[in-house]
Design a protein around this nucleic acid. Structure first.
Lengths: 225, 225
DNA sequence: TAAAATCTTTATAAAATCTTTATAGCATTT
DNA sequence: AAATGCTATAAAGATTTTATAAAGATTTTA
């Protein structure tokens, strides 16, 4: 069975218990984290289809957790919170929350909002496996295969090829790539990029001096095809 | 003009007025309908980017309007309602509503929920491609194809063809082109332009000595078609 | 903690692109 | 027919951009 995984990040055991029972009765597979740090680790190790996140966590603010998750996690994140202030709601939604539900919540409504969020996220055709000639990039499994055999990539190399894969056919500027991978403030470090494009080419191109996948767009950036 | 269109379907004039003022201050273009029937017609005639729908309409239930809209309309529909019953909320969400906000609502929160809904719906990539006979100019991917195969252009060549494409059919003076691409102070360097028009023609014209796309307007400039 | 792996930084050669000059062609005018 | 003004093309020189190796710094792993 492929039940949908939901990760609950909440410090109150009673809430977690309640959510577990409700969600399981709707046939979801539930995982629990009692604080933000644990939640981030669990989400990274085994990415769920949806996250229920409490804003009032003991170790770090739910807003921080939300921001860190959104650096890489694209599935729905629903905020559960006793905080009913407009400030919190606007902040959470603008930080990428899919919905914001105030406690106490009604179970039926919560379940409907979960269904709605999942329905929307599944409408967005997210192709997780990209095939290009001899290359196979699996974004969920985090693997890259060349002619069927796995290519060993470092973390940064993988980030780079994953960014390329998500924008196949488009020219990505140096600035954009640097911002996405190294963050703002690194947008002038074009040399980083050259080095990593070089190592990537050696790993994925058949003839790395005549690349067919990572194309140089001189003066602009690179294009992946 | 690229303001986003929002259609408000609500029978209360005060609410419509309030929404119009708020939405326009956030730079949306607002259209109004006072009942379900009118709303459906307006949505069909001029599909908006988002719909705000009241559940308590005089002629037909908002639930019906929602269902009829969802037969063809895929953009976000946010429900605004005084009805706070779980039954209504679950029904609306399961019928395809993107969100459900109870009246009275807080303007800031509503705006954040609108932003969130639009952000999600726009993740579905929109492409801007210009087609001219055998030429395809993709301004989002920053690529130019001739008969389906990518033409390799330098940065300046691409700037030039992109400027031409955005002004297809118009005569562009030398001065204007030079100002746009090289900047003010280069408006007398007509020779630059001749060289680059030459290289572009060799790449995109079938018979570069008898160009059909980049036409010389002697003494004035060039025209792209 | 030591070793291994990875990332950052520097240096330099090679490649690509842009600028400039030279020359020739064509149409119109004198 | 010669002169003029505008345009096209080739090609040399100058500049910018890119690729690659390799050394130093840092992080991760055993």
């Amino acid at each position: 069975m492929n039940k949908l995984d939901i990760l609950v990040i909440d410090d109150e055991p009673q809430i977690r218990k309640l959510l577990q029972i409700s969600l399981e009765s709707y046939d979801y597979s539930v995982h629990q984290a009692a604080n933000g740090k644990e939640g981030l680790i669990m989400a990274a190790n085994h990415p769920p289809h949806l996250i229920l996140l409490d804003i009032g966590l003991p170790d770090k603010s739910g807003h921080e957790v939300l921001q860190e998750l959104r650096e890489w996690y694209n599935q729905p994140i629903l905020i559960l919170s006793v905080q009913n202030s407009e400030y919190d709601i606007v902040k959470a939604l603008d930080n990428g929350a899919t919905d914001y539900i105030t406690k106490p919540f009604r179970t039926g409504e919560l379940m409907a909002r979960i269904r709605s969020a999942i329905r929307l996220s599944q409408n967005q055709t997210v192709e997780t496996i990209l095939c290009l000639d001899d290359l196979q990039i699996d974004l969920t499994a985090r693997t890259v295969k060349k002619n069927g055999t796995i290519v060993k990539l470092t973390a940064t190399e993988y980030q780079l090829i994953s960014l390329f894969a998500k924008n196949e056919g488009k020219v990505l500027t140096h600035q954009f790539i640097l911002k996405e991978i190294w963050g703002v403030g690194f947008q002038t470090e074009t040399q980083y990029l050259r080095v990593f494009v070089g190592t990537l080419r050696k790993k994925i191109e058949n003839d790395f001096q005549n690349p067919v996948h990572i194309i140089t767009e001189s003066g602009v950036g690179y294009r992946f095809q």
